[in-house]
Design a binder for these strands. Structure first.
Length: 1007
RNA sequence: GCGGGAGUCGCCCAGCCUGGUCAACGGCGUAGGGCUUAGGACCCUAUCUUUUAGGAGUUCGUGGGUUCAAAUCCCACCUCCCGCACCA
């Protein structure tokens, strides 16, 4: 079947747009449903991965519309942030890689790229690109409410939001360390660095040793080892600087002095001193006043810490090795004699190491590797000296072991920290040193050197006077928990993650100094940060409609405007005065905006990828509970989906496996892509998108379309047909229908109910599976049945197809319109659904006849049994005899069934129960049968047991006699198929098979 | 470390919430058959072991437990993946 997807889709798009089908207006006669998705950041075209969240949300929206709900599904564009700014800079600088991506990967026309030095042009270009893709995918969006986050009216909204939060005391000031580019004067994150490295930093403790009135600070990550210190290390070839740090005289490396400048310290330079000059001097330990020597070491790096290292040879492999190197130096370097006199002081005990853990660690890390190593092998451990890279491994292993398992030695040296676990001691010592004034902290980039895209090396900077949202506020957290507890979180597995994030969040910077966005109203140097201006904007969709049609202008949107529209403060004195004397917005317009807000709010479901759980989605909850009235306008639900993989691996530019969404639509059609995305995985799983499934889906849709066309061709245009199936009263009386039709109706209704349940639970993959595969096998069986009887069953087929296609509509909205048209179900431009019943098929519970379903199961089981006998024996059947259990067995079987329903499950209990009833006396003579019947019954589900116990009228023999012979002859080619009851006096049973018959398990003989 | 998730029949992936319809959906692969000038596409059948009577046996990371019944519930363990911030 050749399908012109492009034509069908563009035709649908035109009709949808012309009819304003997705433009939602308040309607008090219908339940509303407000569905939102996280709006896109327009810095690149959409790819398949982006499409997943939007497609799921759209299927959801369309399903709800079919259910008769008034769905609002809007979209905006998030211009706020720095990455686009960074792109513009790189374009201006002619960045090769970026230009290549823009041209080749993104296909941006050359004249557009020329304008990309202005970040706004980048955003506008990709905005239109993304929007076109959304329209082509058939997303049912109300575009009248579109906006960008740099629209003047949106800025008014954000100003109001951020002012209100500040008045509530939720915005505070403080300082905070960030990765920083000294060149750009801006914080850096992963996006801003060469090689996309996230700058990480650690906090060193600088312990203030003294010489001659100068502080010689040694930076360490292990302050608890101070008690094992034996000497200090410096680089004797390095020139250190003498500086005044906040008025104190310090000696540090030049790099260290520069770092301190960014850490809120006042640094002035007084002079230099060489490392060689320091060697040999005695440093005073701050906590004891004792003296230790300063010695030279090669491993000391000026850029790490302060350029001065505290030596703890017992617990630091580098120190131990350096000491040894020095003592062993044949040329008798300065300090070599002193080094020989130094003995490691062990102050941490573990089960793993001995008295000199550092030495043990070196031996462990280098043992067995000595052979084949380059360079001269020295010492029994095979370590080649303090520059041996394996010392790094030794250090890591030793540190980890001592940190998690170590205990501070019970020793005079460790004083009041003796006996403490190392992880505890570390914190305690740090606090104690700080309290005593013996130490300060030094923040430093851990994974350095990290370079900004501009090329400059990044540092840690303490940003002072930074604005923070105080997510650490415990009352705020409590409200958020209350909100979350009432919310529907789909899938529910991630609820726990939300709880944890709420607990764990603390102050978060909400303003930055660069980028697109809205200025802080009270401090024009700052711009509201992009994750803070996107937390309650769903409310703005209501207002956007009035802004876009010119009803309200940005300058009219004062604080009072929002206080009324969003918070309902009609009678607030300020608002009253404003609306009576100041504003020129007509009162009825004000009322209309407020009414529309109250109609659509709260957000019923917010869709997003799971990467937004620890940030945006949680902020969304927090800010709603802070801004809006408890419960009334708090969000009701969140739907989270996993990401999309391409042939099993992550999509990335470098792998070249990114499929642009619009290209995929052109090649395969929107409906096919939608189905492929939905079928690939259940919500939270990562979906693997691959070409096989795309082809498979397209074939499926084309086949289904072909079926619909065939039904039209053989059946005319179907006037008078009942388009949507299921439970309508105008069908022919069902009592006159043949068995297979009755079964098909019940089966279809049962499956329809299941699809509805799956959709309600957002198990779209499951729903789609039922629609595609369950229906297919149902129709397959029906076809066998009707073919055996020589009928076509077209009327039923068409009814089933209409139901099936109706339910497929949310998934494949374009092609299903053509399918429904072929089936004679006109498309209704008013609601975008099907005429003739309208919307999602309704199924009344009592319209499903379980005994009909059971009967068909019996038929199918019997057919399966015959087939497996034929397969095992390889017989070509001539006559097939089927023997149904007699009335006496049936009576006993029911007796057993009753026993089981009364919780009697063991053979003994059942026998006792049976014999208590005189009608069951026959049971005594057939214990084998009772045993087998019991086993049969125990293996049924509870539902089946109940159903069997209820359907007392069902006559197996009669049903099989009327339905089996034709079917079995057709299927197996037997000339004769006979059905007997076990007790039938006319029975033909040469092999005595009949006695094996059990209820719902007839005996079979094949000749 | 803190938090979350996952381990299923060659591969991918469902089933677990609500125990029985589960030798376990669907897709890919493989084998046989059909269709076709051929190739592709498509359709049918088979695909844990065993079996010439519809049966039996052994399976769902490992080991225990609960139950008449466990892939599914409980406990312990092993392995893998993801997030941990001022960034969209």
């Amino acid at each position: 079947m050749d399908v012109d997807w492009g034509a069908i889709e563009s035709d649908c798009r035109r009709r949808w747009a012309d009819s304003g089908l997705f433009e939602a207006e308040p309607d008090n006669g219908r339940p509303k449903r407000f569905i939102t998705v996280a709006y896109p950041y327009p810095n690149s075209p959409q790819h398949i991965g982006h499409g997943r969240t939007y497609t799921i949300a759209d299927v959801h929206a369309r399903f709800r519309r079919l259910r008769g709900e008034n769905v609002l599904f809007p979209m905006g564009f998030h211009y706020t942030g720095t990455p686009i700014l960074g792109m513009a800079k790189r374009v201006a600088a002619g960045d090769k890689e970026l230009m290549e991506n823009l041209r080749v990967l993104y296909g941006v026309p050359e004249d557009e790229i020329a304008g990309f030095t202005d970040p706004i042009n980048i955003a506008r270009y990709f905005h239109q690109e993304i929007k076109s893709g959304m329209i082509e995918m058939g997303y049912s969006i109300d575009w009248r409410r579109e906006f960008t986050t740099i629209d003047p009216a949106y800025s008014k909204f954000i100003e109001w939001q951020i002012n209100t939060l500040r008045e509530k005391g939720l915005i505070i000031r403080g300082s905070h360390p960030v990765g920083w580019c000294p060149e750009d004067q801006n914080p850096v994150s992963q996006h801003d660095t060469l090689g996309d490295v996230e700058p990480e930093f650690t906090e060193y403790v600088m312990i203030k040793f003294l010489i001659d009135g100068y502080i010689v600070p040694a930076a360490t990550l292990r302050p608890e080892t101070l008690f094992g210190v034996t000497n200090l290390w410096v680089d004797q070839n390095l020139t250190y600087v003498r500086v005044l740090v906040d008025g104190q005289k310090w000696i540090v490396s030049r790099e260290c002095a520069r770092k301190l400048e960014f850490l809120e310290r006042t640094v002035s330079y007084e002079g230099e001193i060489t490392g060689a000059d320091l060697v040999g001097r005695a440093a005073i330990m701050p906590h004891t006043g004792g003296e230790i020597p300063i010695l030279p070491a090669e491993f000391v790096q000026s850029s790490t810490g302060t350029g001065i290292v505290m030596s703890v040879p017992a617990h630091a492999p580098y120190d131990w090795q350096a000491l040894r190197d020095l003592a062993d130096s044949i040329d008798g370097r300065p300090g070599s004699a002193a080094a020989s006199d130094i003995h490691p002081i062990c102050i941490i005990e573990t089960n793993t190491y001995g008295r000199v853990p550092a030495e043990d660690a070196i031996v462990a890390a280098t043992a067995g590797q000595a052979e084949g190593e380059e360079g001269e092998v020295k010492g029994e451990g095979g370590c080649t000296g303090q520059n041996d890279p394996r010392l790094e491994d030794a250090t890591k292993q030793l540190y980890a072991k001592e940190f998690y398992e170590g205990v501070m030695a019970d020793d005079v040296a460790t004083g009041k920290f003796a006996g403490l676990a190392v992880r505890q001691a570390k914190e305690d010592v740090r606090a104690w040193l700080a309290d005593e004034g013996h130490a300060e902290t030094l923040l430093e980039i851990l994974d350095g050197p990290v370079r900004c895209r501009c090329g400059a090396e990044c540092v840690v900077k303490i940003l002072s006077d930074q604005w923070f949202l105080n997510y650490g506020d415990s009352r705020w957290k409590e409200s958020a928990h209350r909100c979350l507890d009432d919310m529907s979180i789909l899938p529910n597995e991630i609820r726990q993650e939300f709880n944890h994030v709420i607990d764990w969040l603390h102050e978060r910077a909400c303003a930055r100094q660069h980028g697109l966005g809205t200025k802080l109203p009270w401090d024009q140097d700052w711009i509201v940060e992009s994750l803070s201006d996107s937390v309650i904007y769903m409310a703005y969709y209501v207002i956007a409609k009035f802004v876009n049609d010119g009803t309200i202008r940005p300058e009219q949107m004062t604080r009072e405007f929002f206080d009324y529209v969003l918070l309902g403060m009609w009678d607030d004195p300020d608002v009253k005065k404003w609306r009576e004397t100041t504003t020129d917005i007509p009162q009825d317009v004000l009322r209309a905006v407020r009414d529309e807000f109250c109609y659509f709010y709260p957000v019923d479901y917010r869709h997003s990828g799971r990467d937004l759980v620890p940030n945006h989605l949680t902020f969304f909850i927090l800010n709603h509970v802070a801004m809006f009235a408890e419960r009334l306008h708090w969000p009701r639900g969140i739907v989270v989906n996993g990401s999309v993989l391409m042939d099993g691996s992550k999509m990335s530019k470098s792998m070249g496996n990114i499929i642009p969404l619009r290209q995929a639509i052109r090649e395969y059609g929107a409906d096919t892509i939608r189905l492929a995305i939905i079928t690939s995985a259940e919500l939270l799983q990562d979906a693997d998108f691959n070409m096989e499934s795309v082809h498979g889906m397209r074939a499926k849709l084309e086949a289904l379309y072909g079926e619909c066309i065939a039904l039209r061709d053989t059946y005319g245009d179907g006037a008078g047909g009942d388009g949507t199936a299921g439970g309508g009263g105008e069908e022919p009386a069902e009592t006159v229908l043949p068995a297979e039709d009755l079964w098909l109706l019940s089966k279809m209704r049962q499956t329809t109910l299941r699809v509805g349940e799956s959709m309600e639970r957002m198990r779209m993959r499951e729903a789609l599976h039922l629609i595609l595969f369950e229906f297919e096998s149902m129709i397959g069986w029906y076809t066998k049945r009707t073919a055996a009887k020589g009928s076509d069953g077209e009327g039923m087929r068409r009814r089933v197809a209409a139901t099936r296609v109706t339910m497929l509509q949310p998934f494949a909205p374009h092609i299903t319109e053509s399918m429904l048209a072929a089936l004679g179900c006109e498309s209704d431009s008013e609601v975008g659904v099907v005429v003739g019943g309208g919307g999602w098929p309704d199924v009344a519970d009592d319209s499903i006849d379980t005994s009909v379903l059971q009967a068909e199961d019996l038929l199918r089981d019997t057919m399966d049994d015959i087939a497996s006998i034929l397969k095992v024996t390889g017989i070509k059947p001539n006559r097939i005899m089927v023997y149904v259990a007699g009335p006496q067995k049936m009576t006993v079987y029911r007796g057993v069934l009753n026993c089981v329903l009364e919780e009697k499950r063991s053979m003994g209990d059942v026998m006792k129960g049976l014999l208590a009833d005189p009608a069951m006396s026959g049971a005594k003579r057939m214990p084998d049968f009772v045993q087998k019947a019991l086993r049969d019954i125990l293996s049924y589900t509870l539902d089946t047991r109940n159903a069997r116990s209820r359907s007392t009228k069902f006559d197996e023999a009669e049903f099989l006699a009327s339905e089996l012979p034709e079917l079995a002859s057709a299927e197996f080619g037997a000339a004769e198929v006979a059905v007997y009851t076990e007790s039938d006096p006319e029975i033909y049973d040469p092999k005595g098979k009949a006695r094996h018959a059990r209820p719902f398990k007839p005996a079979i003989l094949i000749e």
